[in-house]
């Protein structure tokens, strides 16, 4: 059966660390970094990347347009 696999890219310098993407992810992929970016914010990272289904919820709720989402099918 084909399986859906997703992945995201976070614009770490644009991220303001609001955590809304972390809350929006249905499969708990995201977490905040320990490091901070140039603005001083912790940024969103894929902590549990295998769980991403490419649903784009994180990107849709991100107020700053930091997240790009990719999705593919694997057989």
């Amino acid at each position: 059966m084909a399986k859906i696999k997703g992945a995201i890219v976070v614009n770490q310098e644009r991220c303001k660390g609001c955590r809304l993407c972390v809350v929006a992810c249905p499969t708990n992929v995201l977490a905040m970094s320990k490091q901070v970016n140039a603005k001083g914010y912790n940024f969103a990272v894929m902590e549990n990347e295998d769980a991403c289904i490419g649903c784009a919820s994180c990107g849709i709720v991100c107020p700053d347009g930091c997240i790009t989402v990719y999705k593919t099918k694997i057989d």
Binding site: A7, G59, V69
Partner: peptide, 14 residues
């Protein structure tokens, strides 16, 4: 991840 992050798989961007 690198095999997923490809232009043809893009589903959402700013």
């Amino acid at each position: 991840i690198e095999d997923i992050i490809k232009p043809e798989n893009l589903v959402y961007k700013k």
